[in-house]
Design a protein around this nucleic acid. Structure first.
Length: 505
RNA sequence: GGCGCAUUCGUCUAGUGGCCUAGGACGCAUCCCUCUCAAGGAUGAGACCACGGGUUCGAAUCCCGUAUGCGCUACCA
């Protein structure tokens, strides 16, 4: 059959509450989520709020909204609780402090009383000597008097990890194989800050251990920190989880660096506002750094869960392509979404454009007549729109009165012989519409046939016949198909609009 | 500067020693369809697999060096 059954993975997404999550970040969350679901494991949401200076109000909600919209649900987390609650680091402070204390007692960590000024001076001096910046480990061998003086001065110490001065530390990266570092290049990193909060290095590790996380899935910018982590895992006697470092999402071609605000929309809400479909964004993001085979590109969530293989995550950074995202979004609108699903997603955008009321966003689907009209209107834009934002301009004609249209009368004439000819043509169309039975107006093909009869009558080509009604009905030169518009508006309204146009000539 | 990771069409990728005179997709071009705009269909241009050395009967695939890109180098994550 297929590959051997992997054991259930416990993975997590552990964002910092600094606002709306970055799309590159979310992609890593998607990978972690898919791995958990694919293996029948659990996906955990954990909030890493250990840096109080960078906290942004409302971030938790923003994170939940982003995940929610993309269709990523967690099994445990601050909102849901779980066997290892709390899932917010600021509520777990005593736990980290206890582990830090243990490391100190074991001799693997030490208090450091150095001032920020001294640290800065040390760094400067080292850089001047062409040495890599870093802590000079001054407090490793601090004298008792010096220590007592610092305490008497009320200096709050940090806790630093005591890194071996010699030797090598290596580990097996899940995607990249063996990676090793000289211990001499590793700093005596701070693991507990002077305010009693842990740094990332201590906190993530303690939590992952306690929460029984099996796979650490994060961006590859963490690789340089891994040797420190390995040393810490060993000092604390934790098993080392599977370490998966995903590629980064870079700016579009031509721009340098990691995907940034300057170059593209970077949060999920922006894409939502711009009319992107959640499934399309998710699908696109997954394909940035992962592939299933040499041809499949469109995946439903169910297919992703079934087919996701963490081993196929790329090691090369990927450039974000707004063009391909837009293509994929259009593909979802045109080919994946049903008419009903599409119309439902259009509602907020129609309201935003003032075509329907805010309450109708909720009530319209329950009002059969109104819903049919809105559904039919949206359908006119379905195989054309690239984003939901493009729907309203395409269908607004159906919601506006003909009297409000503003267009040059020359538009009405188009390829025809002149105002008089167009007047005659419109008259003929009106007569045809009046004489034709109701069934004819139910179908765009029979409407087209009726229009063709008018064409034969007046010796005009199809393009000439359909041009004036297009402008009369939509108020524009670019519009949905003419028979489609007639069908949507119905006999009375169509004739009315033609008469309004007639006045203009 | 130091350390680390990466390197297949402009971009996302397939490829794990012979099936590769390198496949798919986006974008681009041309044509078809056509009531406008799209969508759709077809075709095409586009990669000496970063470069230089090995290993091998045989390398995009393995090894070494160089170059380039990216990341890290905080009491940020």
């Amino acid at each position: 059959m297929s590959d051997n059954q992997p054991s259930p993975a416990r993975t997590r997404y552990a964002p910092s509450p600094t606002g709306y999550p970055h799309i590159g970040n979310l992609r890593t969350a998607i990978f972690a989520f898919l791995e958990a679901r694919h293996t029948g494991g659990q996906f955990i949401l954990r909030i890493e709020d250990t840096d109080r200076k960078r906290m942004v109000e409302g971030s938790l909600q923003a994170i939940k909204d982003s995940l929610n919209w993309l269709g990523i649900d967690n099994d445990e987390g601050p909102d849901k609780g779980g066997p290892h609650a709390p899932y917010t680091q600021s509520e777990r402070l005593p736990i980290y402090q206890q582990y830090a204390q243990q490391l100190i007692e074991q001799g693997n960590a030490y208090y450091c009383y150095c001032s920020p000024q001294r640290l800065e001076a040390v760094n400067k001096a080292r850089v001047a000597q062409k040495l890599p910046p870093g802590y000079d480990r001054h407090c490793r061998n601090i004298s008792e008097e010096e220590k007592q003086k610092a305490i008497a001065d009320g200096i709050l110490p940090v806790v630093r990890f005591r890194v071996p001065l010699e030797g090598k530390t290596s580990y097996n990266d899940f995607l990249r194989g063996n990676i090793s570092f000289e211990n001499s290049t590793i700093n005596d990193q701070v693991i507990l800050k002077s305010d009693g909060f842990p740094t990332y290095h201590l906190a993530y590790m303690v939590d992952d251990y306690l929460m029984e996380v099996t796979h650490v899935i994060r961006g590859h910018e963490w690789i340089p920190s891994v040797p420190l982590h390995i040393l810490l895992y060993k000092a604390m006697n934790f098993p080392i989880p599977i370490l998966v470092h995903t590629p980064l999402v870079l700016n579009p071609p031509g721009q340098q660096g990691k995907l940034s605000k300057r170059n593209s929309a970077v949060s999920v809400v922006e894409y939502r506002k711009d009319g992107y479909i959640a499934e399309a964004l998710l699908n696109y993001l997954v394909l940035l750094g992962w592939s299933y085979d040499d041809k499949t590109e469109i995946f439903s969530m169910a297919e992703l869960i079934e087919k996701f293989d963490i081993r196929r995550i790329q090691t090369t950074d990927a450039r974000f392509s707004p063009e391909k995202l837009e293509w994929m979004n259009a593909y979802y609108i045109n080919h994946v979404l049903s008419d009903e699903e599409f119309a439902i997603r259009c509602l907020p955008f129609l309201a935003e454009a003032g075509l329907i009321s805010e309450v109708e966003v909720k009530t319209a689907p329950n009002d059969p007549t109104r819903w049919k009209f809105i559904l039919d209107a949206c359908k006119l834009a379905k195989d054309k729109a690239k984003t939901l934002l493009e729907v309203a301009p395409e269908v607004e004609f159906a919601f506006h009165k003909a009297e409000s249209f503003e267009y040059p009368t020359a538009d009405l004439i188009g390829k025809n012989e002149g105002a008089e000819a167009v007047k005659t043509l419109i008259e003929a169309i009106i007569r045809k519409l009046e004489s034709v039975p109701d069934e004819v107006l139910q179908d765009k093909d029979t409407i087209l046939a009726a229009m063709d009869e008018v064409g034969v009558e007046l010796s005009l080509k199809r393009g000439q016949v359909l041009w004036p009604p297009r402008v009369a009905l939509s108020g524009k030169t670019k519009s949905p198909g003419c028979p489609e518009m007639i069908k949507l508006l119905g006999r009375t309204e169509t004739i009315h609009r033609l008469r309004v146009a007639q006045q203009k000539l």
